[in-house]
Each structure stands twice: as C-alpha cells, then as structure tokens.
C-alpha cells in the first residue's frame, strides 16, 4: 500500500515538474513584450544618441537624468513589491535578462564609434529600464488587474 502511494506521489511530482517546465518554456505575449521592448528601446536610444553626438550635444545631462529615473523607478517598485513579498520579481527571469543584455551590448558595440562610451552605457541603461518597466507591468500589474477582474466576476456570480 505504502509503495503504491509513494509511487503515485513520485509520479505526481514528476508530472508537476514537467508541467512547470512546459509552462516556463512556453512563449507568451509577456516574453515577446519584454524582448521587443528591449529591441525597440535599444534602437531608439542608438538613433537618438547618434543624432545628439552628430549635432554636438553633451550627453551628460540626459545620461544623469536617465540614471535618476532608473533609480527612482527601482526604488518605487521595491517599495511597492516589498510589503507583498514580491521583490524577487523586480527583474525578469535570468535567461531573459541574458538575452536582452547580450543583444543590447552587441548592438551598442557595433555603433560604439558613433555613440562613444557614455552613449554605450546610456543605451544599456535605457534599454534595461524600458524592458524592466515592461516586465513589471506585465508580471505584476497584469496579474493584479486579472485578479481584480476575477474577483468582480465571482461577486457577480454570487449575487
């Protein structure tokens, strides 16, 4: 009896793990949004920094402004997520981070002559900020809104 239970339990565990893996590797709109936000932000930043440099602008004020915005954003998200115990969800999954950072670094290195070192860091931070915003929106806000929608529906059913 015990053996059959343990076998069943093991099978359930394996099934759960398989389901979890299948879920984590399924391409969803969230993944595409994070990746496309990174691509779009990186392209936009390269175009603008190139334009600033060619027009003789100093990038320092924009760079400092961007750093301030990024710091404020992270601080705000931490303040919101910490009471809910969700600080771990501040950044996307490691694989997604690696993909996005690699693309940004490679693309910025291609244009490093035209954008300079400061431009390089600007592009990395800018694209990180945008894809992280996208991640936070889709990973936390979407769930919260969906939950609220769900609870409203439940309320309607009860009535």
């Amino acid at each position: 009896m015990k053996k059959s239970v343990s076998k069943k339990g093991r099978k359930d565990k394996i099934r759960n793990i398989k389901q979890k893996n299948a879920k984590s590797y399924t391409l969803r709109k969230y993944h595409l949004n994070v990746i496309s936000a990174n691509l779009f932000a990186m392209t936009l930043a390269i175009f603008f920094i190139r334009s600033y440099v060619s027009r003789g602008f100093s990038i320092w004020p924009v760079f400092l402004g961007l750093c301030a915005i990024t710091a404020v954003f992270i601080l705000l998200v931490v303040l919101v997520l910490k009471p809910r115990g969700k600080v771990k969800t501040l950044f996307p999954h490691r694989n997604l981070l690696i993909i996005n950072f690699s693309i940004s670094i490679i693309m910025s290195l291609i244009y490093i002559r035209q954008i300079g070192l400061l431009g390089f860091f600007f592009i990395i931070i800018f694209s990180f900020l945008l894809f992280d915003i996208e991640h936070v929106i889709y990973d936390n806000l979407q769930k919260a809104w969906a939950d609220r929608r769900g609870s409203k529906l439940k309320g309607r059913v009860k009535k």
Partner: peptide, 9 residues
Amino acid sequence: VLFISYGLM
C-alpha cells in the same frame, strides 16, 4: 531590428 521588434508581436 525595429521591424523585427514589431514583427515578432
């Protein structure tokens, strides 16, 4: 790259 980012979606 820009077209790809839109095309993917």
